[in-house]
Write a protein that binds this DNA or RNA. Structure first.
Length: 491
RNA sequence: GGCGACGUACCCAAGUGGCAAGGGGGAGGUCUGCAAAACCUUUAUUCAGCGGUUCGAAUCCGCUCGUCGCCUCCA
């Protein structure tokens, strides 16, 4: 298994610290606003990575944190006239509402910064004792900064040179700091700000220290995988490395995994540019599975351009998938009553051959730095082969068994990608909802019954009238030997 | 200014030394009461451009052009 490691700049063989176990930590969100589709990408990517480790049989501990104390949260509290912790609570709730709707599994441990204050203080004290950090008086309290020049490896993750950074520093020079690149481990609390008691008086944690404290507490001093969005490489992860490794003298993480951005008109989607869509805006128009396939159709490190066309493509692909499942179900359902059990040997052999290769190919794709785009490609190759087989009009228990085997493989692989877990019927009902089609399943069935009577009487005009009526509403009918089924039209 | 990434068909997207995956769309066909779905054929002699290395390059090297990211909070 190979994983691209930001630290080494290449794909490295994955060797866990402890055989058969993986500890991974992904940076979550700062809870001061609704999540946008960029947060969704990161969540989807690390959800699937953790699923794949489990698929491979690793005993996996996945930690994803909430930053629930921070300048932006305090500012938002001031703007809206509520307390900072009320802001954090609200947006944690909203986070879960969005991520649950997106179908993202909960991480094994979802720690909050404010619940690990004492662990952070311990790390900061150790850093001061080892001469890597210094306290500075600020009003009645003290702030603590990490002295970047005491950590020789500073810049090793982001490949930055300390001198270049200082030369081109855009950060304001802060008189209190010994060096402009030093960063806050602990911030003295100003009047009206939230605070915790500490050896440096009243204060609150800096941004980076929480991840060090929580990763060590919940996984260990060295973790297998540390991940997050590519924008966290510098300064966040660089600073985490400095403070963690200076504290323990051990490597902080073995593999650094960073997902690429979602872009709008080729530009990074971000709060500051204002060019973002929230998860709930998108889920008001597209089904969650569509968003997940859209994200997984590209490699996780590539930038992906967000657009209506892209989501539409993903929607069509999923519809193709479920249409094929429906065809398989028809063959399986008719197997018992099939008078002539038959199967073309060549067609069956072709499908069996592809089925034998399917799981190994999936693993080969995912083992190569989680290449979900290729994995999805293999799924659709199998779908095509299944359709070829079904086109030969197979029947009987042997054909049914072969298709059941295909369904089982697809279910396992799909489950690992968190895709294709529903029935065709559930998919179409979900589409009624996503596309806001004002019809219920029962209502559609009533129309189908009406049309069946017309067709039995060979009243083609009346039958076509029903078809047209439903077509206008966005429903397509498919006449088959044993009845008519409906689908939501993808336009 | 420093560091880094990317440029593959009408659109999206894999492929990083040996015949250019997959999805969407377009065109033609089979099937069908009419449709839809599905399948078949077709849609890149070519991978931003120019050189170089090689028996062989989308893939490696160099240059040019273009786009984007990080260097400040960011997934």
């Amino acid at each position: 298994m190979k994983i691209y490691n930001t630290m080494t700049g290449r794909k490295d063989d994955f060797v866990p610290l402890a055989t058969g176990r993986v500890g991974m930590y992904a940076c979550g969100v700062t809870v001061y606003d609704y999540c946008h589709i960029g947060h969704a990408r990161s969540a989807i990517v690390f959800d699937v990575i953790s699923r794949y480790f489990r698929y491979k049989g690793f005993q996996t501990t996945f930690v994803r944190n909430f930053t629930d104390i921070d300048d932006k949260i305090i500012r938002r509290a001031g703007e809206t006239g509520v307390t900072w912790d009320a802001v954090a609570r609200k947006y944690i709730d909203e986070y879960y509402r969005d991520m649950d709707a997106l179908g993202i599994a909960r991480a094994d441990i979802e720690p909050k910064a404010t619940e690990h204050i004492s662990e952070m203080i311990d790390v900061v004290q150790t850093l001061i004792a080892k001469g890597h950090a210094y306290a500075v008086q600020e009003g009645e309290n003290e702030s603590v900064y990490f002295a970047v020049d005491t950590f020789g490896d500073y810049g090793k993750l982001s490949k930055k040179d300390l001198h270049d950074l200082q030369a081109g520093a855009r950060v304001c020079v802060d008189e209190r700091k010994k060096s402009p690149m030093d960063f806050a481990l602990w911030k003295a609390s100003k009047e009206g700000e939230p605070w915790w008691e500490s050896p440096w008086g009243k204060g609150r944690p800096g941004w980076h220290i929480e991840c060090t404290a929580m990763a060590m507490r919940h996984i260990g001093e060295t973790i297998d995988i540390h991940g997050g969005g590519a924008d966290l490489v510098f300064p966040h992860h660089e600073n985490e490395i400095a403070q963690s490794e200076a504290c323990t003298g051990k490597p902080f993480a073995k593999y650094w995994v960073h997902n690429g951005f979602i872009t709008i008109d080729k530009e990074k989607m971000s709060k500051s540019l204002g060019n973002f869509f929230t998860i709930r805006e998108i889920l008001g128009v597209y089904d969650a599975e569509v968003v997940r396939l859209f994200v997984l159709s590209s490699h996780y490190r590539s930038p992906i351009e967000f657009s209506r066309d892209q989501l539409h493509d993903a929607e069509s692909s999923i519809d193709r998938y479920y249409s094929t499942v429906a065809r398989m179900d028809d063959v399986i359902a008719l197997a018992l009553e099939a008078k002539s059990a038959k199967m073309q040997p060549a067609a069956a052999a072709a499908l069996e051959n592809m089925l034998d290769r399917f799981r190994p190919q999936f693993e080969e794709a995912m083992d190569d730095d989680f290449n979900t785009a290729i994995a999805v490609g293999h799924i659709f190759e199998l779908i095509r082969e299944i359709n070829r087989f079904v086109d030969t009009k197979p029947g009987g228990p042997e054909a049914a068994a072969l298709l059941r085997k295909a369904k089982e493989s697809l279910r396992t692989v799909g489950g690992t990608l968190n895709l294709f877990g529903r029935t065709p019927q559930q998919w179409n009902v979900a589409l009624l909802c996503a596309k806001k089609i004002p019809l219920t399943e029962d209502g559609i069935q009533a129309k189908l019954k009406e049309r069946r009577t017309a067709r039995e009487n060979k009243d083609w005009a009346a039958a076509d009238a029903v078809r047209n009526e439903l077509d206008v509403a966005g429903i397509v009918l498919e006449d088959k030997k044993d009845g008519t089924t409906w689908r939501v039209k993808i336009v």
